[in-house]
Amino acid sequence: MNKLETFEQKAYDQNVKVYDYYLGEESLAGLYIDGRVAINTSVKSLKKRTCVIAEELGHHYTSSGNILDQDDVRTQKQEHKARLWGYNESIGLIGIVEAFNHGCHNLYEMAEYLDVTEEYLKEALDAYRDKYGVRTDIDNYTVCFIPYLTVFKKV
């Protein structure tokens, strides 16, 4: 099962319906409303669809109420929380470690290995850098975000 199918199964298991729907503008990739995810018909790439459904499921698990007003700080916080949920489910620190152990040496290779878009991976790494700072430890590894992404196995 690929990553998109995994997220579709998560949606199904939570009784969240996923629809292909034209959302009126190309810049709006997805939308979550009351147990329904709409993925814009303009989203053709399977990797992009994976990233969209990950974030929209993040809204299912973490958001409440109408959060369309992006000028509201509370809305921005809920949006951030949903995105972080999506990043953790589709990439996660363990995914970064696994990609390095698999021999991925750049963002393109890592995104391919993780089955996400390079843009989504960059956004996730920025979010992790904001959350963890220069570095963080996971299991027997240290993930460094600054000055560049690298992973060290602890001895």
Rank of each mutant, 00 (worst) to 15 (best):
113 Y>F: 15
99 A>D: 06
13 D>P: 09
62 T>A: 08
47 K>R: 15
94 I>N: 14
24 G>Y: 09
121 L>K: 02
80 H>F: 14
70 Q>H: 14
118 E>S: 11
35 G>H: 03
87 Y>H: 02
96 I>V: 15
135 R>I: 03
78 Q>S: 03
146 I>Y: 12
67 I>H: 05
22 Y>C: 08
34 D>P: 08
55 E>V: 02
144 C>W: 12
80 H>P: 02
47 K>Y: 14
55 E>K: 02
12 Y>W: 07
87 Y>E: 03
71 D>C: 10
56 E>H: 01
89 E>S: 07
49 R>Q: 06
30 G>W: 00
15 N>T: 13
81 K>L: 14
69 D>A: 08
27 S>E: 14
9 Q>F: 01
54 A>Q: 01
100 F>R: 11
60 H>Y: 06
131 K>A: 12
138 I>T: 13
106 N>A: 09
32 Y>K: 05
76 Q>M: 13
15 N>P: 08
107 L>P: 00
48 K>N: 06
17 K>H: 11
116 V>R: 05
33 I>P: 07
42 S>A: 15
65 G>D: 10
114 L>T: 00
139 D>P: 01
112 E>F: 03
29 A>K: 09
73 V>Q: 15
115 D>E: 15
61 Y>P: 03
143 V>M: 00
57 L>R: 01
121 L>C: 05
34 D>L: 11
73 V>S: 13
130 D>E: 15
2 N>I: 06
31 L>E: 04
5 E>Y: 03
141 Y>E: 07
80 H>C: 10
121 L>V: 05
25 E>V: 11
118 E>T: 10
133 G>E: 09
40 N>L: 12
132 Y>L: 08
98 E>A: 03
144 C>M: 12
88 N>D: 10
20 D>S: 13
36 R>H: 10
105 H>C: 11
138 I>Q: 06
33 I>T: 12
141 Y>D: 09
18 V>E: 01
83 R>A: 02
128 Y>H: 05
37 V>F: 04
6 T>F: 07
111 A>T: 05
70 Q>V: 09
102 H>K: 14
16 V>G: 01
64 S>D: 10
23 L>Y: 04
19 Y>V: 13
79 E>Y: 05
50 T>W: 02
113 Y>P: 05
6 T>K: 12
126 D>S: 12
100 F>N: 12
123 E>K: 14
52 V>A: 00
56 E>L: 02
31 L>P: 01
138 I>F: 02
91 I>D: 11
8 E>N: 08
114 L>Y: 02
69 D>L: 05
123 E>T: 04
31 L>V: 02
11 A>D: 06
25 E>C: 12
110 M>S: 02
87 Y>S: 01
43 V>W: 00
43 V>E: 03
111 A>I: 05
60 H>C: 10
114 L>N: 00
86 G>A: 09
6 T>A: 12
